[in-house]
Amino acid sequence: MPIIEAHSLSKHFKRFRRRPGLVGAVKDLWHRTYEVVRAVDGIDLSVERGEIIGYIGPNGAGKSTTIKMLTGILVPTAGSLAVQGLVPHKDRYRHVRTIGVVFGQRTQLWWDIAVIEAFNLLQKIYEIPRDEYRQRLKKFNQVLGLEDLLNIPVRKLSLGQRMRCDLAASLLHNPAILFLDEPTIGLDVAVKASIRDFIRETNRQQGTTVILTTHDLSDIEELCSRVIMIDAGKLIYDGGLRELKERVDIPRRLLVETIFPINASKMMLLLKDYRLGITALDPYRWELSFSKGRVNLPQLMQLLLDTLEVRDLELEEPAIEEIVRQIYDRGAPGDAR
């Protein structure tokens, strides 16, 4: 039985539309006009226990709204939703006992008190047996390196430190489902890596189901086997990451900056063996675009470094927005389930 099941799940917001100018403001006093925003518009979801799902889409696509319905914070406008057999917003109290949530931009800890005090409070709130709590805390301390942070008030933690604490906090009660909304936003590479390892381990050892929204494609590549993509409130892809990559050309861009100017024909000749899109931004700066997997990147970079006086190389990973655009342009790769 799926752990999360949704049918034609929708959330519409009514947004007050202000009319411009003084006359408009006066009119608004008498009669207000509203527009309906379809933040989530009839999506079907089915998630099995133990999956790690990447839930992606451009800004304002409806990701957070979906998460808020799944966690019981928002009441759906239409459609049905069952998470572990419960309707989240109706059974909020029972439901939230069995889930863990991390919102990258917020904290579930308390600003003015030390991390350990917040953890102790969570132990009481979730009624975690003492031994279990101690054991888990000890493990989290080791894996996430929290030892030195425990006695610091939350407001004095750096973003990376706070995120590690928040992640630990969300798993103290060993939830069946972990919702992560942009957990790696603004973090440095080392912290990202430790957070990903931790999520992967938790999923493997505890069988925790993970729903991850992110803007960082490398989060998805490292963690998720399945990707669900949403845009303008509708699902546009639901399937494996590999299938997505095979069917959608995920473009990467290499920016090359040279010390001396290079003319176009020389560049073309040099790179004739590679299937690249070559654009000159100016004689010193070149943009090489290619499909991931179709070009041997180390070899290409070696060639560039050997033959040109390279000042700088910069690799751009594709943005989620770009993949979404491709799906639209080429038709969905594999119909949304």
């Binding site: 808020k68 966690t71 019981g72 914070i73 939230v96 919102f103 917020r106 579930q108």
Partner: peptide, 12 residues
Amino acid sequence: DGSIVMDLLKPT
């Protein structure tokens, strides 16, 4: 500021 969300997520 929207942090009410975090309050709602606690079973209390």
